[in-house]
Design a protein around this nucleic acid. Sequence first.
DNA 1: TTTAGTGTGTAGTAATTACTACACATGAAT
DNA 2: ATTCATGTGTAGTAATTACTACACACTAAA
Lengths: 117, 117
Amino acid sequence: MNEFGRYVREKREQLLQSDKSFSLRQVAGRIGIEPTYLSKIERGGLAPPSEQVVLKLAHELGENPDILLAIGGKVSQELKEIILQRPELMADLLRQIKDMPEHAILRIVREVKDGDW
Amino acid sequence: MNEFGRYVREKREQLLQSDKSFSLRQVAGRIGIEPTYLSKIERGGLAPPSEQVVLKLAHELGENPDILLAIGGKVSQELKEIILQRPELMADLLRQIKDMPEHAILRIVREVKDGDW
DNA sequence: TTTAGTGTGTAGTAATTACTACACATGAAT
DNA sequence: ATTCATGTGTAGTAATTACTACACACTAAA
């Protein structure tokens, strides 16, 4: 269940090997939380922190924010707002592509990107 | 700000005109909440209720659940989970189509629907 | 050998979420 | 005239979220 803590600890310790400033205390300091709190989170004793903290953590550790949020079971407010602006449309779209293979969705993303719409 | 309450009250009162069983008390009873609570919500004195209650309300009032949730500022757990299963892909897709006109997205939805993938 | 930095255990808390319970006044039905 | 159903005001609360503060033990450096 506590994927998030394990993942953060592993990543932080990797970085720590080549840069002493990635101690738990210093990272906690830079992202503005108490070391105790980060310790608990990494050890799985507490739930993942707020979106704001996860985003700072992702930035600090060089991780993809969307992925780190997802590991913590969260969807960013940014994405929620995209859905909230056109809920029916987005809901239909998401349900349509839900079971599509990755490559098919990627094709859509790319078509849309260089799209002629 | 309190779109949700106004919307629900209006819809409920519409239904009430042709069906006496859409009184505040009876609707509250059927969806399993206290009349006081529904009253406050409709008058905008309280935040929209939980996803579960919004869904029951949508069903009761014959409203689109995704839309009613959105009016209440919520994205359903169902949609969140679709995103959480492939966060990077879905985040990219949503950001791509965010500013596209409705008809272009609808085209994608349809293409995907009858798609050859 | 004291100082500095490390991680962690225990305890507590402020804010928010999602409600319930009681009491009351008004209007319609019997 | 009384019962019934309506909506609503006030008050309170249990659960969850998102943390902080203090204290301690261990290790490495000066």
